[in-house]
Structures are given as structure tokens and as C-alpha cells.
Design a protein around this nucleic acid. Structure first.
Lengths: 303, 303
DNA sequence: CAGATGATATACATAAATGTATGACTGAGT
DNA sequence: ACTCAGTCATACATTTATGTATATCATCTG
């Protein structure tokens, strides 16, 4: 009853065990040893008064309680990481690490040239880019700055509207030589289409706007956007693509120009970070680079 | 350069030093000793590569860097507290601690009777009530459930609309015997008014709706709502009050019934907590109790 | 079915963090 | 001017946590 608060390090160990699935693996991950990890878990279980794992000899199975606690531990981990990033940047100089979250397409195809220029201007700036379509939470400091395709709702977020990235249908010249040019939406039925594996909110919106797509079957599906782009460039089929991106690839031909979908874009940052020089310059660089990209500016050239 | 991540306990120590203002006080707070606290701070400063405090013999003065890191450390503290609350409640039974955030008026005058009934129904439930007009952040788990007077914006929050609590002018019978009954808004000029010390968003809204109040001077000001209520009950002057609250005090008389301000009310909870029995029953109890209160139900009687 | 691999648990030695005791300094009050 | 209560810093003893080595068990593989 008179027990004091457990060491916060136990939470780090707890999360590592959850993520790695065994005491030994967690020990390797944290640079500690297996007995230490075991003792941490024992101590944490005693402190919270609940079983966290059912021990077995091929690993540890988390209990329901452990799964309930997992998001809290994840918050702790992302917060400590954010704290260290914030600490690493001194007050006046642009140093330290900035973590950016963006979609796969933006992160892999658009940002590299923008960030290269930024890095050239600030050699002490370390850039961490998370290119994933899973949304990272700025409020929980999983990232410092994010490029978002939905309007940010929370008022604690400082956001800058970039504008609309237009999407259009494209195919490689080689593909068109073989299969011919589709002349109408209905004509797409006989073509090879490249698309997503799962339903996203954006795809549902598109289907609502162009109901014709409901009946179209896809010849190539992948959740991985880059795989789709490479399939497009390899001449596998027809796919949606950012129109500014297609300008960089001379062998890609725009199809059905009457179809154009908007991808509204924002750059978002937590308001508390606006006084941080490293975040400020990165935010500004992203805004200006993306504005150029949307306008189809020439500086988005690939290396 | 090959330094590993600092112990998470250092962040707890860091926050305690920030809050307490000295190594010695932080040591007392955490149940450690002053040399240990000093070593923790030294280690943390070495790990982040920045000075966190300027040492002096009457205490420690936080540097700018330390102030930047403070909110992160606060998030860590509230998250660990929330984790422990979550851990203390078992999966099926209503046990453990639930932390509720509400305004001073609601928390001190309205909730006690509701929570007493809840506690009677669930003896193993421990209720923690933060009655403060400072908003606690549900997203950062500073509280599990909140009673709010503004509509919740974030989509990760599960909210239930209660309705409008009407506010009206009241005075104690004794006061009216001495100063007479005001017959109009203009008549208030010659009366003793009780009100807030600072400008809140709600007060600005009220001034906009009844511009006449701009010219009125207050005879008694306090940021502390309870102090205002007690001043009202002591016959010091005229004040706004929840109309359902006034029903419980027979000596309070409603004035200027044509003036009635709305206080829109929600009960809000983080969506992740809806599967937690202790939060679920507390949420339901708050909703039902507050609905009764708004309707002026009879079960809101004070003990 | 034997052997390799990878898991947890335990015993013991070692390293690390903590506590105790003390000194030096500051500022407030007498 | 002096005490007193407060602070931080340092030296040393002790407790605590960690690492090493080993035993035991399960699973997969040839």
C-alpha cells in the first residue's frame, strides 16, 4: 500500500518487450541483458498489481492489461524522443534533428530535392523523414512537421495551406504503343489499371465523384505507392499520378485530360515549435518548396 | 557521440526540480536525496548537451532550454499517471481510479451529489476530481473525463451534449431587504455586483450580448468562483448563478428574470477509454446526473 | 531422434546508483 | 554582528541494480 511510483525506465522496458515479443529480444534492443529486463517486468507487475505477460519458453504473451497500457507507453516513447529533438536544437542556431511526416509519394518523390536544398543551407540540421501513409500524430509529437492531405482541425496546430496538387491519368509511351490510347472513361475497361489494394477515404471520395470507376477492375494492386509508380514507369499499365510529378518523366503521357482530381495539401506544425529555429526554417522550406511543386516550378528537378 | 538514451527517470527528476525550484525541494518531493537529484540533472545536461539550470545557492534558475523542455516533461508525467490509473482497473470490474476535470462551480456544487451516488454503486471505484477553471487536456490524458462548456473539436474525443444550463441574476434576501430590488438593468448601477477579476472568453461573449454591462462596476471581484458564491450567500451583493443551483438555496431571490444567459455543456472522454468499465460507468453517471441537473431534477439535493 | 537455436529462471560477482555526513555559502531576522 | 534556516557541492560508505554464467525447457531441423 505504501508503494512508491515505479521507475519510469520500467515503461521503456515494458514497451520494448511488447514490441520485440521476448525478454531477450528486448534486452538486445535496449542494450541491457535478459535478467535485467525480466526484473523490470517483475517490478512493474508488482507496482501496478496486475499480470502483464504470460511467460512461456518461446516468448512472452501480453495480457489484456498490457495491451491496454501499450498506447500510454507509446506516448511516453514518442514524447521522450521529441524532448531530445527539442533539446538538441539550441536557441538561436539551426541545429539538431527535425522529424518530418509525409505520405509515401510526397516523401519519396517530392521532398528529397526540397530537403537537399534545405540541408545545403543548414549543414548542422539533421533531417528525419517518415514517408508513410500512416498518419503520425503531431499533438503527441510523433513528428515535428507533417505534410497533410486533410485540413488540420486542432487549434494547437499551426498550418499553412499549400493548394491543390492535381492528379491525372498517365501511362508510359511503351504501354500506349502496345495497347493503344483510351479515348473515354468507358474505354478504360479494356485497359490495365494500377491502383490501391485497400479502400481509403480518398478512394471513396473519388468513386463518389466518378461513379464509373466502380465497375473497373485493376490489373495491378499494391498498397505501396512507390510500387505503383514503378509499375507505371515500367509500362505495366495506367495509373493516377501527380501531374507535377509526371512532368519530370518525359515518357509518361497524360490520358483523358478531362479527368483531374484535386489533392488539397497543407504543411502542419505544432504551435509550440514555431519558436524553434530548426522547425521554423524547415517549415518555411517545405512551404516554399511545395508551392513551387504545385505551380510546376522548375526547381523540383530530380537528381 | 555514441551516448545512449538517458534514463527516463531523469525526466521525472527534471520536472520535479522545475516545479519545486531547488534540488533539495525536488529531493523531498520524490523521496530521494539532494545529491542524487543533482547527479540526475548533471547526467541529463550531459545527455542533451545543454545547460538546464544555472546553479545558485538559493536555488536553481531554469535556462531557456529547460523551459522549452518543460511541456514535454509534463506530458510524460501526466501520461505515466494515466497509465497507472488504467492499470489499476481490471478488465471487467469497475475498479481503479477515474480522474474527472470540471469547472469550479460544476466540480464543487454539482458533481459531489452525483459522484456520491456513483461511489455508492461502485464501492471499489476511486474518484479523483480536479475542480479548476484551467482546462486539462484529455488528449494528453491529464484527465479521463471532463465536463466542458465548449464544444469539443477533436475527433478522438467521445462527447455527449448535455444541454444548456441557464444563468440568472440572484441576490440573498437579506441583501434585498437592505438595498431594495433592482427593477431594470440600468438600476444595477446603484447596486453591489459580484464578478470576475479577469476577462474570460465567456465574459466577453456576455458583454457582447448585453452591452449595458460595460458601464457597470463591480463591488467584489474574485477569480475564485466559490468565493463569489459565498459572497452572494452572505448577502454581499448581486451575482450570476446557475438557476438550478439557486433552487437549492431558498434565501436566494431571482432578479431581472428577463436576463438569462446560456451555458452549453458537454461531457467528454477520450475514445480509447470507452471500453474501460470504470470510465464508462462514470461517463454515464455524469451524463445522467447532469441531465437531471439541467432539468432541475430533484435528485440534485445537497447533503 | 539427436543437435542447434532461442527462450526463461536462478546464483553469484561486479558495477553503479544512492544515501550519509559534512563543509561552504547566502539571505532573513534578531 | 550574529544566529538560523535554507541552499549546493563533495567525500565516503552502503545499498541497489546490473551483468555473467549456467541450468532448464521448448521448438525446429536434418
Amino acid at each position: 500500500m505504501t508503494e512508491s511510483e515505479p521507475s519510469w525506465d520500467f515503461y521503456r522496458t515494458f514497451l520494448a518487450v511488447l514490441q520485440q515479443g521476448s525478454l531477450s529480444a528486448a534486452a538486445r534492443d535496449l542494450g541491457l541483458t535478459q535478467p535485467t529486463i525480466g526484473r523490470h517486468i517483475d517490478a512493474l507487475e508488482a507496482a501496478v498489481g496486475a499480470e502483464l505477460f504470460t511467460r512461456s519458453q518461446q516468448g512472452l504473451l501480453p495480457t489484456d492489461t498490457a495491451l491496454v497500457l501499450k498506447p500510454y507507453a507509446e506516448t511516453l516513447a514518442s514524447t521522450t524522443a521529441a524532448l531530445l529533438r527539442a533539446a538538441s536544437s539550441s536557441r538561436d542556431k539551426v541545429t539538431g534533428t527535425v522529424r518530418i511526416s509525409a505520405s509515401e509519394v510526397i516523401g519519396t518523390e517530392v521532398l528529397p530535392s526540397i530537403l537537399a536544398e534545405l540541408q545545403a543551407g543548414y549543414p548542422d540540421l539533421v533531417i528525419e523523414l517518415s514517408a508513410s501513409d500512416a498518419v503520425e500524430d503531431l499533438l503527441q509529437r510523433e513528428a515535428d512537421i507533417a505534410v497533410r492531405m486533410v485540413e488540420p482541425a486542432h487549434e494547437a496546430l499551426l498550418s499553412r495551406h499549400i493548394g491543390i496538387i492535381p492528379l491525372g491519368f498517365f501511362a508510359h509511351r511503351k504501354y500506349l504503343e502496345r495497347y493503344g490510347m483510351p479515348e473515354s472513361i468507358e474505354d478504360l475497361q479494356r485497359h490495365k489499371l494500377i491502383g490501391f489494394d485497400r479502400q481509403t477515404a480518398y478512394i471513396r471520395m473519388m468513386r463518389k465523384r466518378y461513379p464509373i470507376f466502380d465497375g473497373i477492375t485493376l490489373a495491378f494492386r499494391s498498397d505501396h505507392t512507390i510500387a505503383q509508380h514503378n509499375a507505371l514507369r515500367a509500362g505495366l499499365g495506367i495509373s493516377f499520378l501527380h501531374i507535377p510529378l509526371a512532368r519530370r518523366a518525359p515518357d509518361l503521357v497524360r490520358l483523358l485530360p478531362e479527368i483531374e482530381l484535386p489533392l488539397d495539401t497543407w504543411v502542419v506544425m505544432h504551435e509550440n515549435l514555431k519558436t524553434s529555429p530548426r522547425c521554423r526554417v524547415t517549415f518555411d522550406a517545405l512551404v516554399s518548396g511545395l508551392l513551387d511543386y504545385v505551380k510546376g516550378g522548375t526547381d523540383g528537378r530530380r537528381s
